[in-house]
């Protein structure tokens, strides 16, 4: 089951995602995660424990990052597994969201 944990460092927040980022994770992200994020200026998302993604999950991630970027919040994504990164690259996610957010 998809869940996440957060760790606050000054005014930055590290979000660690756990589990598959898929259609089942949609509610968790929309209802629980997004409301917590808006008060921080810097957010980094740890993908270390995300082994699988689906198109809904990617759509969700795009939506999340773009919404935060619009509010002037700096977002970065790190520790992406190689297989998952391949999918991101296939879908040209770095070009859509900005190359700099993938660390």
């Amino acid at each position: 089951m998809f869940h996440f944990s957060t760790k606050e460092i000054k005014n930055a927040l590290e979000v660690k995602l756990e589990g598959d980022l898929d259609i089942d994770g949609t509610e968790v992200v929309e209802d629980q995660l997004i409301p917590q994020l808006e008060k921080y200026r810097v957010i980094s998302i740890n993908f270390e424990n995300v082994p699988f993604v689906d198109s809904s999950g990617i759509g969700l991630l795009m939506h999340l990052v773009q919404a935060l970027q619009d509010k002037g919040i700096h977002v970065s994504i790190f520790n992406v597994k190689q297989d998952v990164q391949e999918i991101f690259d296939l879908l040209q996610l770095p070009e859509i969201l900005g190359e700099e957010i993938f660390i």
């Binding site: 598959d20 259609i23 689906d54 198109s55 809904s56 990617i58 759509g59 297989d83 999918i87």
Partner: peptide, 17 residues
């Protein structure tokens, strides 16, 4: 792709993709 789940195709269809 090994890390891609197509599970949502059956529910949401291809539209999100």
């Amino acid at each position: 792709s090994p890390a891609f789940k197509s599970s949502d195709f059956s529910r949401g269809g291809l539209n999100p993709l």
